[in-house]
Design a binder for these strands. Structure first.
Lengths: 297, 297
DNA sequence: TAAGCAATATGATATTTTTTCATGTACAAA
DNA sequence: TTTGTACATGAAAAAATATCATATTGCTTA
């Protein structure tokens, strides 16, 4: 049972997500009439129209748009609130919303899979949600409470969050088979040489090869797969995590450039809100993750 | 009408605040049976008992205590959420919860009264709440959202809040009629002399006379009235805001010590949450206050 | 330009939830 | 033991919310 009943808001959100009343019937398990009435009631309560509907299609009004976003937020925190109170029974329940940076599943040192398994092996009623996003976005979503924990190489840390070091990720510079440097002997490669070629970067400048001069127009990607693709075209050099390259078939089509010269690491952190409300599920998962990562490095 | 209906939690909070079911009837405007049923339902939903009741008296259980605090928090944010959505109509409504340090009403430069009047003169449906507390507490309550704005001489400012300078408050050191220094000529008073007497301080060390050596056991107070009382005993010297002393009868029984030597000022700030949700009422009051304070200084 | 259709609104009725009223139970104090 | 207070409970009433059938509306389409 739910502690807070937000029938009207839940209906509103479901209607928006379903793009109209008709489809929301199935999402909500009530008839279209009921939905119609609920939306009317909500509009009466608010004193303004939240959406245009009818044969012309479904569309939020300007205020409706604002209301929708706020409603989603409050529903999420209502769920978390429920979970907090229910967890006082000793049962692990509610949402656990985890954010990670992309290409994290092959980072063996992180032990994400192992700790998730440990967490889930315990008796629990947790609804898991995993989101992939950039460190900046993850930070933002942690602060708003949209995420409970996030895992990424956070470079600029903010006061609202607290960070725990998890592991290191090793990076090298790679080129594709078609690239002029592909057949170059390592001994002849140095930063001077590298500087002649275009380099592809991640949009959040977090994996920059340190001390590399980037004189040339460079490509920007927001995702590891995209990075690999661009490097494979043979047009760009680019940094990639070693585990990422080694875990895939195409590794043969990529070449590490002067690994003794061009290698660097980034530190992965677990981030949570400093002033987090107590949630057993979050607590337990953090424990599991930190334990698994700490066990051998 | 309310957007979020938290019947169960509202009942719970009202019952706790009324100290039992019987009195909560009047607070809630429903019969005792209804309350009994609601509390039972809440306990069923939670899966644990939240309070002991019966002829033996009313008492929260351990978990009930936790639940009560969380419930109060969520109800407050639900009210604010309602206000946010309702204010999209253009009507100023909802709570406006203001925190101030004590003895603020005689600080003329602050123009608190004038700006409150301006604010309230506008058509509005705002429920005002004014809380008096120490700067530390005010900071805490702002962060949790318990307060919307706070006014005090904040000395250590935190990142979560943003501060606007409002005005200055002038302080002097005073002694009571019975104090040995009461009849001392100002010329003979210096820090050396002062250091021989006990000084009373505010518990948040914010109005400390700068550069005063406090060698002697000193008294601590958390409130301006208390400070005045202790000074009037003739046993302590103590700092007081000038406006505070001048605005009351007893000023004759207090003496400023070497005002040319011993005077200092503290800066009053208005603090709000940096990442505050948009509330028209809050916005307007802040405008009013800043305008009134800025108009002449 | 009217018929057809798809999306929502509405009125009457059914169902469920919540409240009250009357009464029962338990327990501390007299 | 009695009494009175504080809460619990069952039945009935009231209120809120749902459904079903049908109306309305505006956009296609012929």
């Amino acid at each position: 049972m739910k502690l807070l009943r937000n029938t009207l808001l839940e209906t509103f959100v479901a209607v928006v997500d379903s793009g109209g009343f008709t489809d929301a019937q199935f999402a909500l398990g009530i008839t279209q009439s009921a939905i119609s009435i609920r939306i009317r009631d909500l509009e009466t309560a608010l004193g303004y129209r939240i959406c245009e509907r009818g044969r012309g299609g479904f569309r939020l009004t300007e205020r409706g748009e604002i209301a929708y976003n706020k409603a989603r937020d409050i529903l999420r925190s209502a769920r978390d609130f429920d979970a907090e109170l229910l967890e006082l029974r000793g049962i692990t329940t509610g949402d656990l919303r985890i954010g990670v940076i992309d290409a994290v599943n092959t980072l063996a040192e992180l032990k994400l899979e192992k700790s998730l398994k440990q967490f889930l092996d315990r008796p629990n009623e947790v609804r898991l949600e995993i989101v992939v996003a950039s460190p900046t976005e993850l930070t933002q979503r942690l602060i708003t409470g949209e995420l409970h924990v996030a895992i990424a190489p956070f470079r600029n840390q903010v006061a609202e969050l607290s960070y725990t070091e998890l592991c290191q990720e090793e990076h090298r510079l790679y080129c594709g088979r078609e690239h002029p440097l592909y057949d170059f002997p390592d001994e002849q490669i140095d930063k001077e040489v590298i500087a002649h070629y275009q380099i592809c970067q991640r949009s959040y400048n977090m994996l920059d090869p340190p001390n590399l001069q980037l004189n040339h127009p460079k490509a920007i990607v927001a995702n590891m797969e995209a990075m690999a693709t661009l490097i494979e075209t043979g047009h760009y050099l680019g940094p990639l995590p070693v585990h990422f390259v080694e875990s895939r078939r195409q590794s043969k089509s990529l070449r590490e450039l002067a690994p003794s010269l061009l290698h660097w690491t980034s530190t992965f952190y677990l981030a949570t809100r400093s002033t987090s409300l107590y949630r057993r599920a979050v607590e337990l998962f953090v424990e599991d993750l930190v334990r698994c990562c700490g066990s051998d490095t």
